[in-house]
Design a protein around this nucleic acid. Structure first.
Lengths: 141, 141
DNA sequence: CTATCTGCAAACGTTTTGCATCTGT
DNA sequence: ACAGATGCAAAACGTTTGCAGATAG
């Protein structure tokens, strides 16, 4: 989930110590579930998955953890789904393709040319550019 | 809101007849409010505005009308705001810039080069490409 | 030790729904 | 006439919050 290989982590706890948040077992389970997860899960999906291991897991803990991760720059919150928030542990610059039929989300690691004239942006200071592509995935065509 | 000037509309009702939905006074009030509206209003904003004229206006009617419009291609539903849906009557291709401080939404009518190799899109058939830019607007810098 | 986290339940804001009544066509 | 819209209130849904007890550091 985070590229800290340079630290040579001994274990799970060491691996996430840099976040400077309390590393509870519940949180570590969430980190583990998110690590390398390409499904862009919702809070509900994360909750369901981690609840198997921690039957007392609550939404408060899931949202609390996701919020902490988001604030520490550990995950991205996606607005791809108008119904619920989705989370992406992949922080490398990429975009998303959403199938209008099966609603699956596909990563797109294309380097996209976004050339905008100063005149058009009305003095807006750009932090981030994000491209959302809608259409039909191979299966649904 | 719709570019049907070629029909030479006599009045409000004629203007929207092509939608093939019942043109109630409430709906016409919503159409009028949306026409040329650059504020990307939420359902609540539309409701509040139109309620002044129709005190009995309900959310059911607002959502019903927005849904009909969306399905007939009369408006676009935006996913820019993760809390609530926003609606845009402008159907000409354009993108959005969202200020992270004041949360205002600005239109961006730039023609953006999105060149993607066939290999990267995994057979995905693209219908639409949408760019969301986040940053600071001139006022908030 | 104590600042922070967990888990529960209740509250919240947005959107959807059921249904009786009404109305545009 | 009648398919479809309105308006109300209730429900549904995802998310947030308050708080008492627990725990990581």
């Amino acid at each position: 989930m985070f590229d800290f290989k340079i630290y040579g982590h001994k274990n799970m706890t060491d691996k996430y110590r840099h976040l400077h948040i309390k590393l509870t077992p519940q949180r570590l389970a969430i980190f583990k579930f998110m690590e390398g997860n390409k499904s862009h899960p919702s809070a509900e999906a994360i909750f369901s998955a981690v609840k198997k291991q921690y039957p007392t897991m609550s939404f408060a803990t899931v949202y609390n953890t996701l919020d902490a991760l988001k604030n520490k720059g550990g995950i991205r919150e996606l607005k791809i789904d108008s119904v619920k928030k989705r989370y992406d542990p992949d922080l490398t610059p990429h975009h998303h393709m959403i199938c209008v039929t099966c609603h699956q989300i596909f990563d797109l690691f294309a380097d996209i040319e976004v050339s905008i004239t100063d005149e058009l942006i009305q003095g807006f200071k750009i932090h981030d550019k994000n491209i959302e592509i809608t259409g039909l995935c191979r299966n649904c065509q």
